[in-house]
Amino acid sequence: MMESKAVPSKRSAIRSDVLQQALAFASLIVMFVVFSLASPNFATFTNIVGILLSTAVIGILAVGVTFVIITGGIDLSVGTVMTLASVITGVIISYWGLPIPAGVLGGLAAGALCGFVNGTVTAKMKVPPFIATLGMMMMSQGLSLVISGTRPIYFLGTPSFRQIAMGSLAGIPNAVWIFFASAVIGSLVLTKTVLGRYTFALGSNEEATRLSGINVDRWKIAVYTLCGLYSGLAGVVMASRLNSAQPALGAGYELEAIAAVVIGGTSLSGGEGSVLGTVIGAFLMSVLINGLRILSIPQEWQKVVIGAIVIVAVYADIARRRRR
């Protein structure tokens, strides 16, 4: 007797990024419940505000880098570009004595400019994004130190600058509201606009996009510039929160941002992903760190756990695809 051949497997009706996102969300809930049961100090208003606040900066960076990763690229410079943006903001406000809005705009513009350079080097000069943004990571790190003279810049003369991030609405710090707003806007751009559509198209099949008559280089530059703009925003929020621009900070943030994106179901090979997933991914990491801290697990172990989570998240994604 011949055994019947396996019928071609039915295509899964659920997209893998959506599934991954649901998984991340479920993990988030489970973690929340577990930590709440484990410690009475976890599910308090103060602690939750703390979690939200600690997610804000990484979250803003992660929303920006989500776009780049959906195009199939990578941006390693977001952390140090963020720092450069906060230094520029500090220089404009504290050294030049210009008004706060000028400093904020300067910070945003610095971020966008770095992103524009990343995009141009990648799209026009065909330097792989890993290298282009690695170079930008180092350059912006160096520039931050050069411009600031390796010293922190304090916003002593402008107490209201601190309100940008630390003022609050409904008991929740502005930094968190800024993060939410930037995520909502990011999500709308990704799903409702031309830029968003081409972000997916580039990551899904760049050659087909080109053959459809789309100016691939221009849109790629736009995506990196947008990512840079988000880094600039994160820089302003960071400076405001610390009430100072810390030129030595920032390295390592890019990897946490990328980790958030990946945990949230955005594929590193491009073509799929969502801002909501990224937000969930960023929270998942914050909740985990916060919970471990509350359970008095030494800080050194937090990175170990986060690292493992990233690997598990990506493996879950790969395993599901392979079974397809």
């Binding site: 409702k192 606009t193 031309v194 830029l195 968003g196 559509r197 997916f200 198209a201 990551g203 899904s204 099949n205 050659e207 087909a208 996009t209 053959l211 459809s212 008559g213 789309i214 073509g271 799929e272």
Partner: peptide, 30 residues
Amino acid sequence: HQELNLIPHLTVAQNIFIGREPRRWPRFLL
């Protein structure tokens, strides 16, 4: 083309009108 030039993650409609998407006000909205 022999090797089809579609963008796998987009929908049928999105593929057909890529580069010529109908817009809404303001111009950058699809």
